[in-house]
């Protein structure tokens, strides 16, 4: 898989990913599932996410997986296949998908770890397929002249940047 310098996701990609995440969340009987870019940005989620602060959750999960990866290398391992946090009521299962994304599964008291691991393996393959297709698609942001490349943001002016920050 060639590295993607920028991750560009369209409606149909997100729809496929959302379908996968919803099925995983249901079949694993987990509370919630988050798909996170390895740089810490939330891509999609399913399940009971309303009460979750998903942005820092995604960032911290990415930091945790990155640290686990670095620890693995220090120990001569290629990677650790998953990271697991075990709390009194909540548990977290974090795993890498193709070195490109992180699957976070939030388990509650009704979830079984073995079932989660089984379903994560199965759905990781499906999600990896989506990323493999994304990587085969010309990188629209990097490819000059590609009409798909245009986020249509036009010329960025000082006023645009000022407006972004409001009265900040």
């Amino acid at each position: 898989m060639r590295p993607i310098t920028n991750l560009v996701i369209y409606e149909e990609d997100l729809s496929r990913i959302n379908t996968c995440l919803s099925s995983l969340q249901r079949k694993a009987r987990s509370a919630a599932v988050l798909l996170i870019d390895t740089s810490g940005q939330l891509i999609a989620s399913a399940g009971e996410t309303d009460a979750l602060d998903t942005t820092p959750l995604a960032s911290l999960a990415a930091g945790s997986v990155a640290a686990a990866g670095a620890l693995a290398q220090l120990l001569g391992e290629k990677e650790f296949s998953f990271v697991f946090y075990d709390g009194e009521r909540k548990r977290l299962h974090l795993s890498l998908i193709g070195g490109r994304a992180i699957l976070l599964v939030l388990l509650d008291q009704n979830s079984a770890v073995a079932l989660v691991r089984l379903q994560v393996k199965k759905f990781s393959r499906e999600i990896e397929e989506v990323f493999t297709e994304l990587s085969k698609r010309p990188d629209p942001v990097a490819e000059e002249g590609n009409p798909l490349a245009k986020p249509n943001i036009g010329e960025i002016t000082d006023d645009d940047v000022e407006n972004l920050f409001g009265k900040g």
Binding site: S39, Q41, P151
Partner: peptide, 15 residues
């Protein structure tokens, strides 16, 4: 690495 989400019309950047 920017993450451009056309579905949600969002641009995410890391500084």
């Amino acid at each position: 690495m920017s993450f451009i989400n056309y579905a949600a019309r969002e641009i995410n950047c890391k500084l």
